[in-house]
Structures are given as structure tokens and as C-alpha cells.
Computed example of a mutant assay.
Amino acid sequence: MSTPETAAPAPTPAQLGYRMPAEWEPHEATWIAWPHHREDWPGKFGPVPWVYVEIVRHLSRFERVNIVVDGRRMRDGVTEKLEAHSVDLKQVTFVKARTDRVWLRDSGPTFIVKDKGQEEGDRVGLVDWRFNAWAKYDDHRHDNRIPRRLARRLGLKRWTPRVECEGASRRVVMEGGAIDVNGRGSLLATEECLLSDVQARNPGVDRLTLERIFADYLAARNVIWLNQGIVGDDTHGHVDDLARFVDSTTVVTVVESKVSDPNYEPLQENLRRLQEARDQDGQALRVVPLPMPAPVLFDNERLPASYANFYIANSLVLVPTFNDPADREALNTLAALFPDREVVGIHAVDLVLGLGTLHCLSQQQPAAPAEGSSS
């Protein structure tokens, strides 16, 4: 009696030659979603759309900006605001889709690229993680659909990672703010966000399984685990408020100078881990400290104000600022690290009330690599 053949598992993106590119690699566009969820900025929503206008004004000088809006009325209102600030609307595309919130870093897809491909259209794809609103909020149905909608609009191949756990197959929950990569095979993440029982994204999934997922879907075979995030971060430890690659061998990490501040010791622990870490080739990292601003408070609650939440665009780096003396130090540090890009501060005191700033609200769409290029 013949035995039935078992189908071979489908190749992973990494096996097909895809990788998650570093943020400083060339962009096709930046995606943002226009703010509308007033409860995220209680009593202070009014200034927030104008912060977005300033973001679009700077980005549109260097790359296309794709803005997600829920319909014509929102689009017309946004157009009016952009025109008032002389934004070149030829650099802006409006995309109709509903969102629950606007943090596309987390609800949007993770784009991946292939440096060699038979056709240019085959060189960009996306990973569609499940989004569950940081395992904290119930309203995430629209946000969870965003990657699928973008894949259809852009005509890109889409992968939906799954994991076997406790006898069942389920989609992997992940957010873009939970990871940062150098494009060469190394990835930053925190144990607090991805391995804790608090706001657990993937209950029962261990460290080694997550590392295998990062290797299979992002070609990130070297995971550098930091400890925990900053006070006030309701994502429970996103790494994009802590430490970021700024080139393939250099990481910036925020440090607190006041020993009495509750962030002091956790950030020192992260600094120690980075100083001891090695990249995918076994080489030590260059670790550059960034300051922390003085606490930004609202209703006696500390907000997640951090200079690490910057966004790297084509020829530009946007940095959140907080009317703080440390703003200048942070801007100067990043300007030295990005000598070929403009480094621009964006006033974020109102924006951070929504518990996120520039990196949280943006998602880069990489350009297709030229044939034969490499990271």
C-alpha cells in the first residue's frame, strides 16, 4: 500500500532571498494615517493635525507621502491644511481605508526586499503580522486589515506568519515598534515587550521560537535582547523608544542622567547589554548615548517622551523635540551620525499625549533594490 505524500512546506521569505531592510535604505514612500481618534489626545486634539502637516511638509520634499484617510470629507480637510502650508500635493497620495488608530508603525505591514530577483516587481513584499492593539485595547479590527489592503493596492506578495503553540496554529502578533534592524541580519527587541506575561502578544511562544520567526520572515538571524522600556510606554517596552540602529554597526540608545529617575537603572541595563552585544558577524557594536528629556507629564501621568522615536527618511531625519534643553544635544548627536541627511526637530509635546511620536506614526515603504545590490 502506498503512503500519501506529505507536501513540502512553503519556502520562507528568507529562503527566497528576502530581508527586512534598514530604515535608512532608499524609500519609495512613507505611509501615515491621518489622526482622528480624539480620545488618544484628550482635550488636546486640536494641535495634532497641524503637527502632521509639519511632518508631511518635510517628508514631501524628499519622498512621496501616502496618507490614509477614511473618505472624501477627511481628504478635503487634509488637503486644505496641506495647501495652507504650501505642501506640494503632487508628492502626496490619499488612500481610502478605515483605521481605529493611526500608529501605522505597529498596525501597518513590515516591508521586506529581495536584492536579486527575476523581475523588479518581485523585489518588494510584505509581512502581515496580526495586530491586536498591543494586547491592551479592543478596537483593532480596522487596523488589523491595513496590511492586506496595502498588499492589494501595491500588488505585493504577502506573508502571514503562523506559529504552532499548545496544539493549535495561530497567527503571530507583532508590531513594528517592537523591532529594529540593521538590514544585515541583526535585530533589536526587548524582553519586556515580547517575552513578558503582561500584555502578552503571543502567550506560550518562547524566545527561541520568536528568534526563528525573525530569521524566517525578516532574515534577522541575530537578535539582541534588551531588558525593558521607558516609563509611560503603554506598549510595555517597544524598542523604538529605547535603541535604534543608525548604520549597520552603530546603535543609539537613550540614557537617563538623574540617578533618582525611575528610568535610570533600566536604561543603564540596556546600555550594558548593547556594549556587550555582537552583530551578526560577531563584531562589537558602536554604542552612542542619546539623552532623555525631562519628564513630560499630563494629569500627573508620565508620557513616553524619547528622542529615540526619530524617523529616517530619504535625505532626512525627523526627531521629536520637547521644549527641553536636551533637544539640542539630541539633534546634534543625530546630525553627527547622519551627515548626509537633514536632521529636523518636530515639536512633539502635544503629539506624545497620544503615547507615540514620529516613528510610531510612520511606516516606510522601501524602494525595490537595484539588480545585484546588497545591504
Rank of each mutant, 00 (worst) to 15 (best):
V127M: 04
A133L: 06
I224C: 07
I32L: 14
A308K: 03
A368N: 08
E120F: 11
A178V: 06
F94Y: 13
H236V: 11
R201A: 02
V87R: 00
T333I: 08
N66Q: 06
D240R: 00
E80N: 07
D180S: 09
P42V: 00
G183N: 04
P4Y: 06
D197L: 14
R171F: 12
E211V: 01
E5R: 12
P295F: 09
N314R: 00
K258H: 15
D279L: 08
A330L: 07
R170L: 09
F111P: 05
R212K: 13
A368I: 04
A135E: 11
Y137A: 10
V68S: 03
Q118D: 15
T190R: 03
S375V: 11
T235G: 03
A8L: 13
V254F: 02
T250I: 07
P4K: 04
R75D: 04
V78G: 00
Q275Y: 07
N323F: 13
S260W: 13
V53L: 01
R158S: 09
G121A: 15
T160G: 08
A215N: 11
S2A: 15
L16Q: 12
V53T: 03
P325G: 05
T3C: 12
H58S: 11
L358Y: 06
Y264S: 07
T160M: 11
L267W: 05
K90D: 15
T190D: 04
I32D: 09
E63M: 01
D139H: 13
P304A: 07
G183Y: 01
V198L: 14
V287K: 01
E211D: 02
V344N: 00
E39V: 11
